[in-house]
């Protein structure tokens, strides 16, 4: 009988699929995800798509905040940059969605790197404020650069198509989302065990020590900003392709906060955590929506209580996770897994 999970070399410790069981369960999960559109209704698929976008954005933010330790309050703006780039490229230049999406990622990455420049001089609180300013400035640009963004009227975008196949329903679009999520998560998971990933973690843990050991702070911080914004840009492009319209209200400051909340609730510095956080923080508001509509029909007059309750619950989640479980859902997951690993003979 197995009495523990022993690793005898660093190589083994770094493998992604640590045991055969992990591969098995992931395989089952993949089957479930691939089959989901066949038996789920369009509301469930809508939520599944939202979760997918959130995962991409959160994994990106976690690379920056969780691994490199640079806090960003402007993630929603980068998502917006990606969304607007994709929309403009598709409608103005007539580029196919598949070309526009990576370009949107690159534009967002370039924007993110510009915003990241202050990170060389300032850190901590000051960087938080700088990224917050970036959020508001970009939001202003979305609204007021009328000739490009059409202001608050927004831009209508056609659904992406491949040959004659149009990805216009939630079910069809889900496969694009799933593919991009798998690519993004796989890349991030591999990145964090390479030289680059270790450099990120070194910068997070002690930037001065990292610099002394020969890590070029400026380059790695900028790359972290670029990568994280690239993810954001891709998430934005997908979002635009999915709901087929882009307006400035889609990328408010509160979305930036929501992404940071995902990363914190899920677990800083863990790809799995970002996924958990994205799923959790997307499902909670949806659940509250369901509760609201339920309350509307059963207890009329109570529904006005639910709207503000969303804010309260959102805040309570952040505060209580920070106080009681700072390592987030990923840590809870590890605890549960370890408990059952040796159950019933754990000691």
């Amino acid at each position: 009988m197995r009495c523990g999970d022993f690793k005898e070399s660093y190589l083994k410790d770094e493998t992604i699929f640590q045991t055969y069981w992990v591969k098995f369960w992931l395989f089952i999960l993949m089957l479930f995800l691939l089959g989901l559109p066949f038996y789920a209704n369009s509301y469930v698929m809508y939520v599944a798509n939202l979760i997918g976008f959130a995962i991409i954005g959160a994994v990106g933010l976690n690379l920056l905040t969780g691994f490199t330790g640079q806090i960003s309050l402007g993630h929603a703006a980068f998502i917006g940059v990606g969304g607007y780039t994709a929309a403009i490229l598709v409608t103005r230049l007539g580029l196919p969605f598949w070309v526009a999406m990576p370009l949107a990622g690159l534009t967002a990455a370039a924007t993110g790197m510009v915003i990241g420049i202050p990170s060389l001089r300032v850190k901590g609180l000051y960087l938080v404020i700088a990224t917050l300013a970036a959020q508001f400035i970009l939001e202003y640009v979305f609204v007021h650069w009328e000739s490009m963004t059409h202001g608050i009227r927004g831009i209508n975008v056609p659904a992406p198509r491949l040959g004659s196949f149009v990805f216009d329903t939630e079910q069809k679009f889900y496969y694009i989302t799933l593919a991009v999520v798998l690519l993004g998560v796989g890349f991030a998971r591999n990145l964090v065990r390479t030289k680059w990933g270790r450099a990120f973690i070194a910068i997070r843990d002690r930037d001065l020590a990292a610099e002394i050991m020969g890590i070029n702070l400026f380059r790695y911080k900028l790359v972290a900003f670029g990568l994280s914004s690239f993810y954001a840009g891709i998430a934005g492009a997908l979002w635009v392709g999915f709901i087929k319209v882009v307006t400035p209200e889609h990328f408010p400051f509160s979305l930036s906060i929501q992404y940071l909340a995902m990363v914190i609730v899920g677990g800083l510095g863990s790809v799995l955590g970002a996924i958990f956080g994205a799923v959790f923080m997307t499902l909670v508001p949806e659940l509250l929506n369901v509760l609201t509509s339920f309350a509307k029909s059963s207890v009329p007059g109570l529904e006005h209580v639910f709207l503000p309750m969303k804010d309260v619950i959102f805040g309570l989640l952040i505060v209580s996770f920070l106080i009681f479980e700072p390592h987030g859902l990923a840590e809870i997951w590890h605890r549960i897994k370890n408990f059952f690993n040796l159950w019933p003979f754990s000691y």
Binding site: V128, L260, D311, F314, G315, I318, V319, L322
Partner: peptide, 13 residues
């Protein structure tokens, strides 16, 4: 930072 943001959300609600 996040705790003050969360606090803001609670107070706003």
């Amino acid at each position: 930072i996040m705790v003050t943001i969360g606090l803001g959300s609670i107070l706003k609600g």
